[in-house]
Design a protein around this nucleic acid. Structure first.
Lengths: 225, 225
DNA sequence: GCATTTGTTTACGTATGCATTAAATTATGC
DNA sequence: GCATAATTTAATGCATACGTAAACAAATGC
């Protein structure tokens, strides 16, 4: 997501990147097992960096290392999704409230507003991918403004998981027009320095999203990703 | 903390355990650097498992791997502590509220009650270490009852960090008598199935703890641990 | 005397090798 | 034919080896 200087990427970093990519693009389906040696060959490196990457992704909840079974891509059940959304909801709302306490200048909120406008545009042109992208940017920026690096890290991890589910459900749900009204209200609350409003509106927003996603997952029996 | 089957611990697991121990006991002070080879020798193993352990602890926010500088024990500033407590407060309160929704039977809440009683006893006998231990058990059990494994994991990580700070401040603060009244109220709320009360009381409880700890850290300039 | 360059050390990142042990497969007894 | 035991296979966990590049020191030029 956020590029650093990125001069020479270490093999381990590359492995993390590649593995994540494979998982998010669905090329390694949930529940599938992959031997370290196999992945190493695929990435053109030795087992060591693959193993290190697997350990890192394991502590982020994306995979699991099982002796002799290889690296297992963790499935995400609808119950997992409930857990994840509950954490997301709580921490993002906290961030929203705290963002509203920081008395940001208008220019500090440009990114946030831009994301909202992009979403409007995407909805108008019926571009769901673009909408999803802008939605991500909105939430990332919202959390950043909350000024708590732990929340940023945790939410980024949780959002990774949600992204996997959303890829499946994006095309089966109503156009998210209502959604953007919520975003704008949160934005206004932050601009006006109203923490309670920012918190509460965002919380309800996330709870609606959770209910909708879980209903879709249940309806279509999408236990995996 | 929670022992699994624990037949033969792998070297990597041992390394994680040993390293954590060294950090929590303050034998590796915050900010200090430690070469992989040095730690490997200390633990009687090769660099590989030490490195793997360091990677795991790095993603848990306890250490940092810096090329050629070794494994650095991360300092915890009072601003870090604010971040950590904010996350803890929010997620534990959520867990408390959700625990109250599960209509637990009395026997499911035995552990929780036992921890509260242990705290009372520890306070009566002026045993701060025992109190801290029981307090930990209370909070761990509370979160477990909330029935969200992600929250359990995250809170466990955050509590690790707090533990480091508490070790320093435990003996400079008032006896936590008020604290246990809060615990008991949360317990009652869960028993009576009152989510809002459980949530709100616990939240206020944690906010008080945060304020007190931060004041102590600031007062004594305990920027590190 | 100071700055710059050259040389040396050393810690890491990664590759590789090997012992262990779980799983799979075959063989054996009933 | 089926269950159990023996044997083989193979993937991991860990040790070790090594090239690279950063950090430090020494030496040289000015």
């Amino acid at each position: 997501m956020t590029e650093t200087t990125a001069k020479t990427l270490s093999s381990t970093q590359r492995a993390v990147h590649e593995l994540r990519g494979l998982i998010f693009r669905g090329e390694l389906p949930a529940g599938s097992d992959h031997l370290e040696a196999e992945l190493a060959q695929r990435f053109g490196m030795s087992r060591t960096p693959v193993r290190e990457a697997a350990l890192i992704l394991e502590s982020q909840g994306l995979v699991e290392l099982r002796p002799r079974k290889g690296v297992r891509v963790l499935p995400v059940s609808s119950d997992d999704m409930r857990e994840i959304y509950d954490v997301l909801t709580e921490l993002e709302s906290l961030a929203a409230g705290q963002a509203a306490q920081q008395s940001y200048a208008a220019k500090d909120l440009q990114q946030l507003e831009a994301a909202i406008n992009d979403m409007d545009r995407a909805i108008a042109s019926d571009d769901l991918e673009a909408w999803a992208d802008a939605d991500d940017r909105f939430h990332t920026e919202l959390v950043r403004l909350g000024n708590n690096s732990r929340i940023e890290t945790i939410v980024a991890m949780m959002r990774d998981q949600v992204r996997r589910a959303r890829a499946l459900t994006l095309f089966m749900r109503p156009l998210p027009t209502q959604s953007n009204e919520d975003h704008r209200l949160v934005f206004e609350a932050i601009k006006n320095g109203d923490p309670a409003a920012a918190h509460d509106i965002h919380k309800i927003h996330r709870q609606k999203a959770k209910t909708m996603l879980l209903a879709l997952l249940e309806k279509h029996r999408l236990t995996l990703i």
